[in-house]
Simulated scan of single mutants.
Amino acid sequence: MSLARAVVSHLVDSYLAALAAADIEAVLDLFADDGVVSSPLYGDLPANEFYPLLFADTAQSVLTLRKTLHDIDGADATVAFWFDFAWTLADGTPAPFTAVDVAELNDTGRITHLHIVYDTHPIRAAWEAQQQLSSTSA
């Protein structure tokens, strides 16, 4: 498979825009039907389960792309994008971090598996506190 660089750029730009807008439909359109997300906080989940959870935990997201890296000429296309995620949790707590997302793509350019990589230590306590509040108010 060989995906054009323009397709990769569109994928990354579309993903970050959908993430910032908390647009579930737009983000899921970038995934294969059986796409999976591996997240340090949420674990391994189907994309259609992960994003509703993430967006429910989010008041605001501001994303700033640093760099895109890709291997699109081989049989298994892979795109990595390094970005700053100025995340504000649903309770208003800032939880910013820098991440690298590694996307494995199928032959149509849709994400089959997204691996999210970042250090959770600086934000884990705030995220866990919000999870406790959410579970007691439910």
Rank of each mutant, 00 (worst) to 15 (best):
Met1Ile: 11
Ala4His: 11
Ala4Met: 12
Arg5Cys: 04
Arg5Val: 09
Val8Thr: 14
His10Phe: 06
Val12His: 09
Val12Leu: 05
Asp13Tyr: 03
Ser14Ile: 01
Ala18Ser: 08
Ala20Tyr: 00
Ala21Ile: 03
Ala21Lys: 04
Asp23Cys: 01
Asp23Val: 03
Leu30Pro: 03
Leu30Asp: 05
Phe31Cys: 11
Phe31Tyr: 15
Ala32Ile: 08
Ala32Ser: 13
Val37Lys: 00
Val37Gln: 02
Gly43Leu: 02
Asp44Ser: 11
Asp44Phe: 02
Asp44Val: 13
Leu45Cys: 06
Ala47Met: 06
Glu49Arg: 15
Phe50Tyr: 15
Asp57Leu: 06
Gln60Glu: 15
Leu63Pro: 14
Leu63Trp: 07
Leu65Val: 14
Thr68Tyr: 09
Asp71Tyr: 07
Asp76Arg: 10
Ala80Gly: 11
Ala86Thr: 12
Trp87Cys: 08
Thr88Arg: 14
Ala90Lys: 10
Asp91Leu: 06
Phe97Glu: 12
Thr98Pro: 05
Ala99Asp: 13
Asp101Arg: 03
Asp101Ser: 10
Glu104Thr: 12
Thr112Val: 08
His113Pro: 02
Ile116Arg: 14
Tyr118Pro: 09
Asp119Pro: 13
Pro122Cys: 08
Trp127His: 13
Trp127Val: 14
Gln132Thr: 10
Ser134Phe: 02
Ser135Glu: 10
Ala138Glu: 06
Ala138Val: 06
